[in-house]
Design a protein around this nucleic acid. Sequence first.
DNA 1: ATTTAAAGAACGAACGTTCGCTTTATATGC
DNA 2: GCATATAAAGCGAACGTTCGTTCTTTAAAT
Lengths: 214, 214
Amino acid sequence: MARLADPALAQRRRREIVEAAMTCFRKRGFHQASMHEICAAAGISAGALYRYFPSKADIILTIAEEDQRATEALIESIAAGADITESLVNIARDVVCRCGENQPLTADVLAEAMRDPALAKRFAGRILEMQERLARAIAAGQRRGSVERSVDPDTAARLVTLMIDGLVLRAAIVGAEGGEQLAAAFRTFVERVLKPAQATSPRRTARLVVSPES
Amino acid sequence: MARLADPALAQRRRREIVEAAMTCFRKRGFHQASMHEICAAAGISAGALYRYFPSKADIILTIAEEDQRATEALIESIAAGADITESLVNIARDVVCRCGENQPLTADVLAEAMRDPALAKRFAGRILEMQERLARAIAAGQRRGSVERSVDPDTAARLVTLMIDGLVLRAAIVGAEGGEQLAAAFRTFVERVLKPAQATSPRRTARLVVSPES
DNA sequence: ATTTAAAGAACGAACGTTCGCTTTATATGC
DNA sequence: GCATATAAAGCGAACGTTCGTTCTTTAAAT
């Protein structure tokens, strides 16, 4: 990689390349998409590309980190929201609607992480961090009364991240119409696990006996 | 692919090849593992391999279907068990303990499915089928009283498959010690979503009032 | 002698990457 | 204002390698 005079240009080019690479990777996967394809998509030559990225692996790494940061931002916004349960449901809808956009990439990143122990370690660390943050938010919600008190915050946080992972990967497969059902299912999940019992939870066994849902 | 005289030998060789390929794919992924590696792992030559498989893609397809059938068998055994909630928890423990064995493959298959619409369609079909079977089992459990009555069986089935997907993929990343926590979390999930309220669920707000299910 | 199985060298294609060249932009001397 | 010098930016053919696959040959079995 030669010396780069203009940092602004370099940054712009790198972004263009990453963007082009993401398109290619989405369509064909990390290891099936070729550098030539990426060059074509970015509208530059191979020589030019290698001025801004030292290797294909480096592009992949950059994208993997970006993907991770996106999920992180998602969790962050959940933790920041006032009503966790509502935030969660909204996020889920976002995820399933953004169908087939970044999910293939996420799956690829995941597959990559499973083989590369170093990447897996980093992944595990981030997941743990997110879970802890979420757990704190849930605990805060419990103190405020917006979250069911009988749940262990750590467990609940684990469940939520697991469910979101499942959601992301499934959404890409079932397509748009299935997404609605997924979102609805997720709402049920949140209500069952996080919503306080006395609020609007459908688990009111006694009510069924008296008069189910007037 | 030349004519094969002995079907039994052919089947044996195919199995050996598939087994070897799975080892390679687990280690390096579908598109990074080479045919030569697979040949070496299977202990045969390239020429011999191509007598039993027409292409690499065909090996991948065979493995993808096998992986899918494995998940299917999992769900099947859940549906067959007497107590669904207990079966589920047991299955989950199995899944998270069998750490780093087949999960990389599953992730690869998933990533593959996301790019190949035909594969995705087949995937979606199988998932739907499994969900329906599971939903029927849940409905049966509700009639027997072993499953909470207020849950919609379809929604519950969807949630369970989502959660298992998340579990499978997460287990490989967090490793063995994290697996225990995952299994515990899954138990909580099942208790919250499927277990009848009066049984062991901590959420027993309504029971005090009527006690619908003695 | 004929057929099946296996081997492994060889093939063309495609890969990620490099390298030498050209173009473009900016600075300098007149 | 123009010619010249310098270096960054970009190009694309070419490199060596590796890939999935084929082909020719050999060994064994019937």
